[in-house]
Every structure is written in structure tokens, then in C-alpha cells.
Simulated scan of single mutants.
Amino acid sequence: MPKLKPATQRARREHILDAAEFCFARAGFHRTTMQDICKEASISPGALYVYFNSKEDLIAGLAERDRSEFAERFAEVSAAPDFMEALSKLGDHYFREEPAHRRIMCLEIGVESTRNPRVGEIYRAVDRFVEESFEKLFARLAAEGRIHPDLDIPTLTKVFSMIGDGLFMRRALDPNFDTDKLVPAAMSVIGRLLNAGAPAPQQTIEKKDRQ
């Protein structure tokens, strides 16, 4: 049998991950079998096991794909001259544009992470990566005088993550979630939390002293 080209191998791997996403979202991690994923992907078990040996391996693949995608989008936010505008676009992607089954799948993996040690390690590694990315960004923006939060940066990042997690969960679970109203409202709250573009307290005091 001729060896597949790397591009073909990557495409097949992505196709299997897409199938796993649908299956995990539809039936849950425990009820989904490897055979279900084979059926969804229209491949044989032998073809599946070339790329993934278990459902945990599939979750690791999904997590790495999500991490890589986030890193790419985050790089645009980090480099943007208007941070809040770029952050709003990022929010639109994850809370408005991303398909519903991906949100449900992420929740399913999150719940499984509380029971399965290996899934827990994978899930928390991605969570740490996202949180650390924002913490470093917030620290840089504060040093540049582009944000002036009242909270210290680690606490600010935790609160920011809690808002994002809450939005993500509500968007996945609430069929009446009003994206057009609630996502901009959440961004407004985040803007106030960051105090983006406002003068630093010391700058305000100095200005008053000169008057």
C-alpha cells in the first residue's frame, strides 16, 4: 500500500476529529464508542486506530487543535492597536459564530475532566494556557498604560476567565440565550473591569494639582 502524503494524513486526522466532536456532543463521552466515531467518519476501525488509540487520545487531539486555534486568534488580539475591538471580535467568534455542537462538546469534556485523570490533565493544560496568555497580555497592557484595572493582574485574569466561562456555558445550555444583547453587555462589563483607555489614578491627581 502506498504511503499517504503528509497533507492527506493531516486531512484524514482532522476529519476523524470532526467526527469525534459530533459524536461526543451528540451522545456524551461515555456513550460514544470508537465504532460510533468510525461510522460518523465513514472509515474502518483500522483506519481510525492509525491515528488514535482511544477516546482519550481523541480528546487530546481535540484539545491540541483548540489550543492551536486559540493561539492563532489570540496573537491577533495581542497585536491589535485597539484591544477592546479585537477582544470583541474574539468574543463574537466563540460566543456567536462557533457551531453549537462544539460548545456542547467542550462542556462534555469539562465534566469528564472531573472523573477521568487523563482527561483532567488535558483539559486543565488548555485552560492554563488560555489563562496564562491573557495574564501576560493584561500585564503588558497595564505596563504600557493601556489598561488601568483596580484589581491586581492575577485576580483580574481570574475574574475575566469566570465571565468568559459563564458566557460559554450559558450559550451552550440556554436555548433562549440572547447573543446580540448579552455578549455586547458582557464586553461592556469587561471594559470597565479593565478600565481600558482611562487615565491612571496618579495621572488624574497630577492633572488636578496643576489646575
Results as ranks from 00 to 15, higher is better:
Phe168Glu: 06
Arg124Ile: 09
Gly91Gln: 01
Leu48Thr: 06
Arg73Gly: 06
Arg115Leu: 12
Tyr49Asp: 01
Leu58Lys: 01
Leu141His: 07
Gly110Val: 05
Phe70Ser: 01
Asp152Met: 06
Glu97Pro: 10
Met169Arg: 05
Cys106Met: 12
Glu131Gln: 02
Ser88Asn: 11
His93Pro: 11
Glu64Thr: 10
Arg171Cys: 15
Gly110Ala: 13
Ser88Met: 12
Arg140Gln: 15
Thr155His: 09
Ile153Met: 02
Pro81Val: 03
Leu173Pro: 03
Glu132Gly: 08
Asp66Asn: 11
Ser133Arg: 02
Val111Leu: 14
Gly46Cys: 12
Ser88Ile: 07
Arg96Ser: 15
Ala75Trp: 09
Gly145Leu: 03
Phe74Pro: 01
Phe95Arg: 01
Thr114Phe: 15
Glu108Ile: 04
Gly91Ser: 07
Glu56Leu: 11
Ile163Val: 13
Met84Asp: 02
Arg146Gln: 14
His148Gly: 07
Cys106Asp: 11
Glu112Arg: 13
Lys158Thr: 12
Ala71Met: 10
Asp66Cys: 04
Leu141Asn: 06
Ser54Gly: 07
Ile43Phe: 00
Ser54His: 06
Leu137Gln: 10
Arg118Cys: 02
Leu173Ser: 06
Thr157Tyr: 09
Phe160Arg: 01
Arg170Asn: 13
Lys89Asp: 13
Glu76Trp: 00
Phe138Gln: 02
Gly110Tyr: 09
Ile163Met: 05
Glu144Pro: 00
Ala143Met: 09
Leu137Pro: 09
Pro45Arg: 06
Thr33Met: 05
Ala71Ile: 04
Phe138Glu: 01
Leu87Pro: 03
Val50Pro: 11
Arg124Phe: 12
Ala80Thr: 01
Ala41Met: 04
Phe129Asn: 04
Ala142His: 10
Leu173Cys: 13
Met84Asn: 02
Leu87Met: 06
Met169Asn: 00
Ala63Leu: 14
His101Trp: 00
Arg115Thr: 05
His93Arg: 04
Ala41Pro: 12
Arg140Ile: 11
Ala47Thr: 13
Glu56Lys: 13
Arg146Asp: 12
Gln35Lys: 07
Ile109Leu: 14
Val77Tyr: 03
Gly166Lys: 11
Ile109Met: 14
Arg146Met: 12
Gly91Leu: 01
Ala142Trp: 03
Pro45Glu: 03
Lys89Tyr: 07
